[in-house]
Design a protein around this nucleic acid. Structure first.
Lengths: 183, 183, 183, 183
DNA sequence: GATGAATGAGATTTCATTCAT
DNA sequence: GATGAATGAAATCTCATTCAT
C-alpha cells in the first residue's frame, strides 16, 4: 500500500474516533494527512469506503490477535488469557474502542457496516464459545453471551460513563469469577 | 408546554434515535412535526438545545421510575425488581436505549451532554449501590460496577450486536445470579 | 405618547447606535424594552418606521437647540456659541452622533432617510449661513461649507478614527480661527 | 491570484460600497461574480474575511500611492500635491470612499476592522505630520489633525450630505489656506 | 393596548465529490 | 500518482412580520 494511502487511513481512523464520522470532513482528513483531495479520491471511492476499509482491516487485526490465544492449554487458562488481552487493549488503545463504539451506534455508519459488524460479532462469539464448549457444552452459549456482555459493558462504562472507573478491581473480579468456574 | 413544542420534542426524539443526531436535519424535524422552522427556533435556541432538553427530561423520567422501587422490601427483592424493570424497558423502549447509546458515543453529541451524562450516571450508581450496601458494605462498590456493566453490556449486545439475542435466557441467568448472592 | 412607545424609541435608538440598524433585531428591541412584538407593531408600522421616527424627532430637537442661539448678538459671538454647542454635544452625546453617522453611511438606511437627511442638512446650512451672511455676503457660502466640513470631520475623527483625539486643542484652534475672521 | 478570486474581490468591493456589507448577500456576490458559493468559501473563510481582505489590500494601495509624494520638494508643494491627490481620488473613486465610510461607521463591520482602521489612520497621520514637521515642529500635530478633519469632513459632505457640493470651490479654498501657511 | 406563537423567505456556511491539469 | 479549483445541494439559523386571543 502506498505511503500516502496508509497515511490517509491512519489519519481518518484517528479523526473518526475523536470527532465521529459525520463531523470529520474530507477536507480535514486531507489537511491532517497532508495530501490533496484529488489523491484521496484516487485511492478511495468515497468517504464511506474509507470507513469500510478501516473497519474491515481492524476486524482482520482482531482475528489475528485472537489466533494467538493458545488453544492447547486448559480452558481456564484460555479464559484468563482472553480477559487479560481485552483489558490490555482497553487500556492501551482507547481510541480504537471509541471508534468502534461510535460507528456501531451511529445509525448512519451502522447501516453502512451492518454486514461487517455481524461478521465480526460472529467470529468473536465463536472464538469465545469454543473455549466454553470445553467447560460445559450445555451452558457454553449462555456463558459466551454473558462474558461478551460483561466485556462490552465494562468497556462502555470505562470509556464513556465513569471518570474514575476502577478497571483493575473489575478485572480482578472478572478473572476470579472465571477462575472459579466449574466444569 | 404548548402542543407544538411537545410535538417537536417527540418528533426529534424519534428521529434522533432512528437516524442519529447529525443525520436528522431541522428541516426533517419540521416536516415530520408539521411546523415551520421559525417555530422550532422560537421554542429552542438551536438543534443542540433540543437534544439537551430531550436528554435532561429523560433523566428526570428515569429518576421518577427508580423512585418506584420499593426500598422497604429486602435487598434481593429490590435487585429482582430492578432487573425486571430494566429488561422490561429494554424490550418495550428499544428506541430510547438506542437514542442514548448513539448520543453517548457520538463525540459531537457526547461533549454537549458530558455534564448531564455524568450526572445521570451518578444518580444511577448511587441508587444501585444503596441496594448492595444492605448486602455487603465491603463489596457494594464492586458489585454495583459489575451489575451496571452487565446491564449495559446486555443492552448493547441485544440492541446492536446480535440479531437473535436470547434476552429471556440472559435475564434468567442474571436473576439467578443475584438471587444466590450472599450477605 | 404612551410610556411603552417612548420606551421602544429609546431602546431602539440606543441599540441602533450600538449595533447598527441591520444588526438590531426587532426581537432584541422587544426584549430590551420589555414589551411584546405585538405591541411594537401596534405602535409602529415596521422596523423602518421606528428608524424614521427616531431620525425626524432628532432633527426637531436639533432645530430647537439651534433656535437657542441668540441672534441678537454679534456674529463672532454667535459662531463661538455654535462651536461651543457642537463640542458640548460631541462630548456628551457620543451615541447620538454615532447613530447619525452610521445610518447616514449605511446605504440601506441612508436611502430610507434620504429626504429627511437632505432636509436636516438644508436647515443646518441655512442656520450657519445666516451667521456668515452678517460677516461677508460674498464669502458666506464658502465659509458655511468650510465650517460644516470642519465640524463633521472633527466629529468623525474624534468618534471613529483616533483613540486619543485632542478634542480640546482642536476646539481652541477652531474658536481661534473664527474669532480672527474679518468682516 | 486566481482569476476567480480576484473577480470575487472586485464584485464584493463594488457591492459592499453600493449596498453596504450587511445588505450584500453571499448569494448576490456569487451571482454577480458568476461563481458558485462553494468557490467563494474555498477562497475565503467567511463573508467577513472578504471584507478584511478588501480593507487591508486597499490600505496597501493607499500607502503605495502616498509613497509617490515627492518629499524632496518644499513642504508647501507637498501639501499642494497631497490635497490635489485627495480631491482627484474623491472625484474619481467615489465608490471607494463610500465603501470606507460605511464600513467604518457600521458597528458590526467597524469592530471587525478596528485594528486595521487604527493602523491605517496611524500611517496617514504620520505621513501628513511628516510634512508639517518641516513647517512648524510646534504646531505640526494640531495642523495635521486639522487638515485630516478638513479632508474627511469635505469627503463626508461631498459624498453624503449635499447634492450640489461645490467641490472645486472648496478645493481652491483649501489650497489657498495651505499656500499661505507660515513657517 | 398587549401577548407571544407562528410563518416563510432568505442568510451564511459546510461538504462530499468532480475534473482539468 | 497528485493537485486544488470548482460545484451545488443541503445544513443551521435569523428575522421582519402577522394574527388569534
Amino acid at each position: 500500500m502506498s505511503d500516502n494511502k496508509e497515511k490517509v487511513l491512519e489519519t481518518a481512523t484517528k479523526l473518526f474516533a475523536e470527532l465521529g464520522f459525520e463531523k470529520t470532513s474530507m477536507a480535514l482528513i486531507c489537511k491532517e494527512a497532508k495530501v490533496s483531495k484529488g489523491l484521496v479520491y484516487h485511492h478511495f471511492e468515497s468517504k464511506k469506503s474509507i470507513l469500510i476499509e478501516i473497519f474491515t482491516s481492524s476486524t482482520h487485526k482482531m482475528i489475528e490477535s485472537n489466533v494467538n490465544i493458545n488453544d492447547t492449554i486448559e480452558p481456564k487458562g484460555e479464559l484468563k488469557q482472553l480477559i487479560n488481552n481485552v483489558f490490555y487493549q482497553l487500556e492501551n488503545d482507547k481510541l480504537f474502542f471509541q471508534f468502534n463504539l461510535n460507528i456501531m451506534f451511529q445509525p448512519s455508519t451502522r447501516s453502512l457496516l451492518e454486514a461487517h459488524i455481524k461478521e465480526r460479532a460472529d467470529i468473536l462469539f465463536k472464538s469465545v464459545k469454543r473455549i466454553f464448549d470445553k467447560i460445559s457444552l450445555d451452558r457454553s452459549e449462555i456463558l459466551t453471551y454473558t462474558l461478551l456482555a460483561e466485556i462490552d459493558g465494562i468497556a462502555l462504562n470505562y470509556l464513556s460513563v465513569f471518570d474514575d472507573y476502577p478497571l483493575q478491581m473489575i478485572k480482578a473480579e472478572l478473572l476470579n469469577k472465571y477462575n472459579k468456574i466449574k466444569k
